[in-house]
Amino acid sequence: MIRDITIGQYFPGTSLIHKLDPRVKIVLTVLNIAALFLCRNFFSLLLMFVMSVVWVLLSRIPFKTILKGLKMILMILIFTAFLQIFYNDGGTVLWHPVENWDFKITTEGVFSAIFIAVRIVSLILLSTLLTYTTSPTLLTDAIERLLSPLKVFKVKVHSLAMMMTIALRFIPTLIEEIDIIMSAQKARGADLETGSLIQRAKALVPILVPLFVNSFRRAYELAFAMEARCYGGDEKRTRLRVMKVSARDIVMLAVTLVCLTAVVVTSFANVGGFILFERVI
């Protein structure tokens, strides 16, 4: 059901990861993801995977929740792994069913499938963890601060961040609304599941029109409410949560940097690497 979507959700908590300065958290996530793409052998990838799992453990988000988020991408995962198996024909041949066919499964194919799968899982773990442990307001605040140098180029960073806050706030409301409108139109016999592509697209009109009309009404009312609360689009507003880089941020930053250096070194110097994957990169 549409209500089960967890992407972009926030799970309030008091763990080390929750308490990190959101700016540091964003930077670390970006660094980790970059490092993930630099991995060239199993050793470095393993290092990154362990690091992602450690982050999950530190965040104290229940494993069940994390797995639920991963379930959404299971199909993509299987598909990409599948492709890797067939597009690699290096290494020892494990299975070659028809003599004259190009189709065969090789050790390198299997290895690269595993490699890609682990990389995607780590990527999802790291990026969902950022939204799971940071409130949307803090996240957009942090992005606003990180992007503030762009003001020099006349980019309206504050307005962009405000828009993001409001968008994130209204996503659950709109999901719920779509659910209700769909049920209501189905109750009047709307058929959303059968017919040609064009028919199905047409069947969306009774859902999209009310959704847009209602969103405009919401926007109009929200604007009044924001005005009544003295919002003037001013960047000088104060904030409830002051962002301060503390000792724990420094420590996390240092630990991550050490790990990343290890990843880069092991990758390029092929330290401890028993198989080198030049092509995977």
Binding site: E177, I180, I181, S183, A184, Q185, A187, G189, V205, P206, I207, V209, P210, V213, N214
Partner: peptide, 15 residues
């Protein structure tokens, strides 16, 4: 069609 259901605030479903 035999069991008609009017949702709460049905005016928000006009299109």
């Amino acid at each position: 069609f035999r069991v008609g259901l009017v949702f709460q605030y049905p005016e928000y479903q006009l299109f």
